[in-house]
Design a protein around this nucleic acid. Structure first.
Lengths: 155, 155
DNA sequence: GTATCTGCAAATTTTTTGCCAGTAG
DNA sequence: CTACTGGCAAAAAATTTGCAGATAC
């Protein structure tokens, strides 16, 4: 645990320094939590969890810290059109799937190979693609509903 | 034009009826505008445009109408984590690309073949996929910036 | 005729900001 | 030291809601 926390802090310290930001206890706590969960928490959920682990932190600071982490490439902000944003501390290639029943967001272990992106690139009509995001909707193993749900895109 | 407007209204009337909703002048105006533009407007932009085309409409009604259209499958709500949601009246398979420079959202004419989705489906670890969304980021033809921008996913 | 819809304004929700004291480097 | 940060509370932005009158069917 200590081992992991230390390396988490080290990763953060390096990334912050590289981007001209300072290492603080609040940012460390936010990053420690975010990089240790796969729950894709909202800013408020991060706040409620982290406030128990550092002497004091405010919701505004959580928002500022999350934005800093995103700008340093240590987190990504996810929006699904259901109110508030969610944050993901994983930085390796992966996608997301949102369960239409329990609303949970789960990580999809695979990823679209770069070659496929390039192939699609050619269809973008003059648009230079530098990145992409792929999100699935459906039902997680716990909520499986076998009511004639076929593959219907653009849910 | 009249021809197109009439058919737009007919499409809307049928979809609303099918879902137990009533046809109103406000909903028609919102749908007419949304299905005639590829600008992916925000709710407020829809409001500002449509208010010039119907005797009276309020922003709240625009929000309600847009939600109704989405629930009837006549529009989709897009969120990119930059404040407010955007709406798209196109219902045929297509993707979106967001320019990191001018912030504009353009339609990508192609679409990922269903076979590829199925292939990815197998990587979803028990998750039943019913739909997906693919979004690109990069630079549109007008904003092209050739600064060492390589393919970096999860922007 | 009646259930649904609209406009309005107020309320909510989510996120951002200004400012001063505190702290990292 | 000094510029960057955090807390706090207020503001801003986006969206939703309650309600009374209007309207589609």
């Amino acid at each position: 645990m200590d081992q992991q926390d230390l390396s988490s802090d080290d990763v953060l310290r390096d990334a912050l320094e590289e981007h001209g930001h300072r290492f603080t206890e609040q940012r460390a706590a936010v990053y420690r939590f975010l990089s240790s969960t796969d729950m894709h928490p909202t800013a408020d959920e991060v706040f409620l969890t982290v406030r128990n682990q550092v002497p004091v932190i405010s919701l505004a600071t959580v928002y500022k810290s999350l934005e800093t982490l995103v700008s340093c490439g240590l987190a990504q902000k996810l929006t699904f059109g259901e109110g508030c944003a969610r944050y993901d501390g994983r930085t390796d290639p992966h996608h997301h799937a949102r369960c239409l029943s329990c609303e949970r967001i789960v990580d999809v272990p695979g990823s679209l190979p770069p070659e496929d992106v390039r192939e699609l690139d050619q269809e973008t009509d003059g648009f230079t693609v530098t990145g992409y995001r792929l999100e699935f909707t459906g039902y997680c193993s716990g909520c499986r509903e076998d009511d004639g749900a076929s593959v219907m895109a653009w849910s």
